[in-house]
Design a protein around this nucleic acid. Structure first.
Lengths: 217, 217
DNA sequence: TAGATTGTTAATCGATTAACAATC
DNA sequence: TAGATTGTTAATCGATTAACAATC
């Protein structure tokens, strides 16, 4: 049962399928065809069928796909059911916003600890968890063996922190810092969030929109 | 002087170039070749040269690229110098984190107003700006004519808000809500940030890492 | 000048789309 | 059964990589 490597392009679309199927399920839609779904999502029916068939045949000819069943399959493919013990590094504005805004449990992430280097934060309770000082990172990780770290610290602090976290066995990073983990540590699971890049891309689109408008005049 | 449409794949790489060149400039590096830069960034020299040549020849044979000059060129291509009057909708945890964490001015975004539907927030000052009630949105926008809205509200609230914002002339959205603006309003500049999708992608990578590990045993 | 490195064209690779036979 | 829609193969399209002549 050799699993053929699935391309990153396909994987990146799975969460979006998962979201749309969730919405459909909420609306009580029972079944959907690739054609209907493609119209809603703004892509081609072919692509949807190709994407899904990387993982198996989840549909039925002449019927389409069962919304709830397909959603669950995609959830399993993504590993949303795999438990992931998680720590948050950096309890500033961004760390707190992420902590409260994400539905971690829903995706089987459990927040086991929160760390910050600011001693004024130490002991403060966020979402039922006391903030620890970064000095206690090693001790905590050796005891608790977390899998994932959410990195909400400035770039300057990241290099050292990543080294320490990798040393105590962290295998996955949700990286909001601007330190390029992937380049330095291959073989980890890293997901970089560069909000600045996203804002710059919007910037380009705005300019592009304006240029196009001028040309039409 | 017909500008050929540049592909989204190229555009999405520009902010990353911009960031790396910024780092190099900080370190005092004066010039860099596509080969050196590709090694640092984990991509091919060919790709860098191809990407840059979508916009013009910024290098010099036998020498490479001037770091500071190239960075500025990319900034201009992205439109970082184009002023963008911006409003924030939703002053909850996430909105506040974004407000304080992003370097808006650096990219010529100026925050002109902040709105929230929670009356308890009205009048509160964030970064020198008083939070307004969402009811005052139209009046404010007709007077101030902002270009961009940062949408940090729940999905439920977004549909109505986007309709209202488009009506008063907002052309760009930095969208942290889960409402799919692009599908409903083509012809706007929209940049969606789906943190949940990013977290699910990390989830997949974790599972994948584990599977690979097991196979090797 | 000789060496280095770009700009650019050509070749390759992968991803998307189209088509259609299989089948519910 | 007839109609619909999948799973899957083949065709197309676009993006990445390789190669090399131009040139600083």
């Amino acid at each position: 049962m050799s699993e053929k490597q699935v391309s990153a392009s396909v994987i990146r679309r799975l969460p979006r399928y998962y979201r749309f199927l969730g919405m459909l399920a909420e609306n009580g839609t029972e079944r959907i065809s690739s054609g209907e779904l493609s119209a809603k999502m703004g892509l081609t029916a072919s692509q949807i069928r190709q994407d899904l068939n990387c993982f198996g045949g989840f549909g039925q000819q002449g019927y389409g796909y069962n919304v709830v069943a397909l959603r669950e399959e995609i959830g399993k493919i993504l590993g949303l059911d795999l438990p992931k013990k998680t720590i948050l590094i950096g309890a500033g504005n961004l760390g707190r916003a992420i902590l409260t805004h994400m539905n971690f449990e829903e995706k089987s992430f459990s927040i086991a600890g929160i760390f910050d280097r600011d001693e004024n934060y130490t002991g403060e309770i966020l979402e039922g968890i006391a903030i620890r000082h970064t000095d206690d990172l090693e001790e905590f990780c050796q005891a608790e063996k977390p899998d994932v770290a959410i990195l909400c610290v400035p770039k300057m602090a990241s290099e050292d922190l990543v080294r320490r976290l990798v040393a105590v066995g962290i295998k996955g990073f949700w990286n909001f810092s601007h330190y390029d983990i992937g380049v330095h540590y291959p073989g980890l699971a890293v997901e970089n969030v560069h909000l600045g890049d996203s804002l710059m891309t919007l910037c380009y689109s705005m300019q592009d929109l304006e240029n196009r408008g001028e040309k039409e005049e």
